[in-house]
């Protein structure tokens, strides 16, 4: 295919990606070093109120925003270097926490709290998703043919459902006097208050994520199981391999590329976890890195959005993405060069 034809086919897509992905990235990078603020001036204001014989006058110095001829506030954009980053990382509080080796204080700073949770969340859910997905796939593969279709249908539901709604449906089972909470209380004869317990919420968020992603792993493993070489399995049986050994030494090595694929996708997706925070209203207990940026971007009570802090936290989130992708990308590059 000639370059010109190729360009005409690929052009629109590349243009969109440049305009809406590459360009915003550059603009985020720039914004993270700048702060845009309204310009304020100080003005002496004399306010008088009626009094007996003489007026009572008070003169005070007020800070008021400067308005231009249209009545809009004038803003300045200042180059502030790394101060937004320092802000997001916690500034003085961070230094104090580090010098006194106080992990608790460090985790009270939003960014480190989000980082701690995001990493725990990602790393704990990964083996669970792989394990549960593989277990379902093996079981369905051995099941009677007639039930396979309905089983796949039901299994797909948690995966296909809107993440916020999926989270909510689990939240309603547990929060307040949710039905499962009532069962648990009856079982252990205690009083549970899930919505006010950070660790319980953390557990629920992980539970939701595994429930949501395991079907994806299941479908992919199930497709992989169809291509396992039956002759190899038969010879393993003849050689006296047990069921477990067959799984361990024949099936799992065959599925290895799929395991790597799911791991990569899951790490990417769990690292940018976000909907869990919304669905479980966990912002005062557990937040994720992506929620941190979202929170800076939402207008506060005065209607201001902390764009520069959001940009700084976005760039810090990016560091994780780069670390995550470095290894697989290097391998792909070496394979490409080797060809």
């Amino acid at each position: 295919m000639k370059f010109k034809t190729f360009a005409m086919f690929v052009g629109p897509s590349v243009f969109l990606m440049l305009l809406f992905i590459a360009f915003p990235l550059v603009s985020v990078l720039l914004n993270s070093f700048q702060v845009t603020q309204p310009v304020f001036t100080t003005q002496e204001v004399e306010t008088c109120s009626a009094g007996f014989l003489t007026q009572n006058c008070v003169t005070e110095v007020k800070t008021i925003p400067v308005l231009d001829e249209n009545g809009d506030t004038v803003t300045t954009t200042e180059w502030v270097g790394f101060s937004s980053y320092a802000n997001v990382l916690g500034g003085q509080r961070f230094v104090d926490a580090i010098t006194s080796f106080d992990l608790g204080a460090l985790l009270r700073i939003d960014f480190w709290r989000a980082l701690r949770f995001t990493l725990t969340f990602t790393l704990i859910t990964l083996p669970l998703v792989l394990g549960l997905g593989l277990a379902i796939a093996v079981v369905v593969n051995n099941a009677t043919k007639a039930i396979k279709g309905p089983v796949i249908f039901v299994s797909l539901l948690p995966f296909i459902i809107t993440p916020v709604i999926g989270g909510l449906s689990i939240r309603w089972l547990f929060y307040g006097d949710g039905i499962v909470t009532v069962w648990l209380e009856a079982l252990f004869n205690t009083d549970l208050s899930i919505a006010a317990n950070g660790w319980a919420i953390e557990f629920l968020m992980m539970f939701y994520r595994v429930w949501h992603v395991a079907p994806f792993a299941f479908v992919i493993f199930y497709a992989g199981l169809q291509t396992v070489n039956q002759d190899t399995l038969e010879s393993a049986v003849i050689d006296g391999a047990s069921r477990w050994e067959r799984l361990r030494y024949v099936v799992i090595p065959h599925l290895m590329p799929l395991i790597v694929f799911i791991t990569l996708i899951h790490l990417m997706d769990a690292y940018r976890a976000f909907e869990e925070v919304i669905a479980f209203s966990s912002e005062s207990y557990r937040i994720t890195l992506q929620y941190l940026t979202y929170d800076y971007l939402t207008p506060d009570d005065a209607g201001n959005r902390a764009i520069s802090s959001a940009s700084a936290s976005a760039m810090l989130t990016m560091v994780g993405v780069v670390i995550l992708l470095a290894a697989p990308l290097r391998r792909t590059w070496q394979e490409h060069r080797g060809r």
Partner: peptide, 16 residues
């Protein structure tokens, strides 16, 4: 690489 980007990173670029 773009697929791995958190969407909030991009939205931070669009909003202003």
């Amino acid at each position: 690489v773009f697929r791995a980007l958190p969407h909030s990173v991009l939205v931070a670029g669009y909003l202003p």
